[in-house]
Design a protein around this nucleic acid. Structure first.
Lengths: 223, 223
DNA sequence: GTGTTGTTTAAACGATCGTTTGAAAAAAGA
DNA sequence: TCTTTTTTCAAACGATCGTTTAAACAACAC
């Protein structure tokens, strides 16, 4: 075992990155079953066995791809929530402010990646809806703790509210967000072209209003 | 070619029904990929080839199962909407009344099937989120026309509203419903047991409030 | 140069998939 | 009963999947 060389071997890093990028595209388009090791290797211009070499297994590759896409968004979510609290140190945040911190970072990530049609919406929603058991750990790991942070903020914002109501409606809000991300390509068909699926930012802003008002509608005071 | 016999051959109908039921269970639990012809045949106590015999292909079997589960719900949805209109012939329906007609029949179907843990929620949501291209026709066939009916009712209920707002928010409402159905098993984990995933009826009623208020929040008058 | 380490490659393995075949079994009609 | 039709069954086919192996190749240390 030698000390890793200072000089990077860029060849390996390049193919690993290409594999991750191809995994992203295939997973967004076709789900876990659509990510075949042969398909990924071929579209990444490398060999079948390089997937096992770089990641160990298909599951590990998919998990690493998901992690690389979701973790930056979650980091931004936490940051935005903290920033909003700093701006209003005396009052609890409003419902809209809280859900802005949760949902806007998704839209911003889409902006950043608009070069490659950005399958980030599909990746997020598929992470929750794909029936692959190995994805279960994704939820706990990437959304469990984050949900507690946002839930605590919602409790703080609604001190008189029934706790059960808060949980149910936060659950609806998150589910709605995931559902809207998963279904966003249908808006064009469904509205007969009246609404455009490409205006992700407009969707995000509308979605924030939708879930915030839906959330508040279900909150009653403690009895 | 003979005239079909009046006397039914119940044996064939039985295995076909058993295959459909098994398909339902596996599809709800594991999605399209989890419905393997060998798995279905085995759990239905029949032979592998009987699937091809009765349905022609796996896709046809899955589609027939989905059809058998969704069509009755959609029929009830139309009926409830018509009934509500008859009760209030002079005024347009309220947003809540319209979404009640859309969402309540799902909960009622769960009630009807509580014998076999009723994977109907998963079946509906998976029909929209599974990345199987042959499921695309399900959406157009089972939801396209129905959506127009409900959309027209919402337009009638909001005559001054901007049409684009109506489409976007109806899209959110449907996506939220699908998302909530897809994620409903997580409420227990997420709320640390404070909320119960088994009280589907409570979820349905809460969901109606949520999407109705979310919908109305995004509607502005024509400029 | 030689040797070591990291990376790529072609080839094969075992498993599972959906589908098809042809004959046996069961049911229905005559 | 005998004939016909419908249904079941075991077996096999070709395709594709994830993974593994062992050899070839490339980059660096000495």
């Amino acid at each position: 075992m030698k000390v890793p060389s200072v000089q990077k071997r860029l060849n390996g890093q390049n193919t690993k990155a290409r594999l991750l990028q191809t995994t992203e595209i295939l997973f967004a388009a076709k789900g876990v079953a659509g990510v075949t090791m042969r398909g990924v290797a071929q579209r990444a211009n490398t060999n079948l066995a390089s997937v096992s070499y770089h990641f160990g297994s298909k599951e590990a590759m998919v998990l690493e791809m998901i992690k690389s896409k979701i973790e930056p968004i979650n980091a931004t979510r936490r940051k935005r929530l903290a920033q909003a609290k700093l701006k209003h140190p005396d009052n609890p945040l409003t419902t809209v402010q809280i859900f802005r911190a949760l949902i806007r970072p998704v839209g911003e990530q889409v902006e950043k990646e608009l070069r490659n049609q950005s399958g980030i919406l599909e990746i997020i929603s598929r992470s929750f809806t794909e029936p692959a058991s190995f994805l279960e750990k994704v939820h706990k790991r990437f959304f469990g703790e984050l949900s507690q942070v946002f839930m605590n903020e919602l409790k703080f914002a609604h001190p008189l509210a029934n706790e059960e109501d808060l949980y149910w409606n936060y659950h609806f809000a998150v589910s709605s967000m995931l559902g809207a991300l998963a279904q966003h390509k249908r808006i064009c068909d469904f509205s007969s072209g009246r609404c455009n699926e490409n205006s992700i930012q407009e969707m995000i802003e509308r979605l924030i209003i939708f879930v915030s008002q839906g959330f508040e509608a279900g909150i009653k005071n403690k009895k």
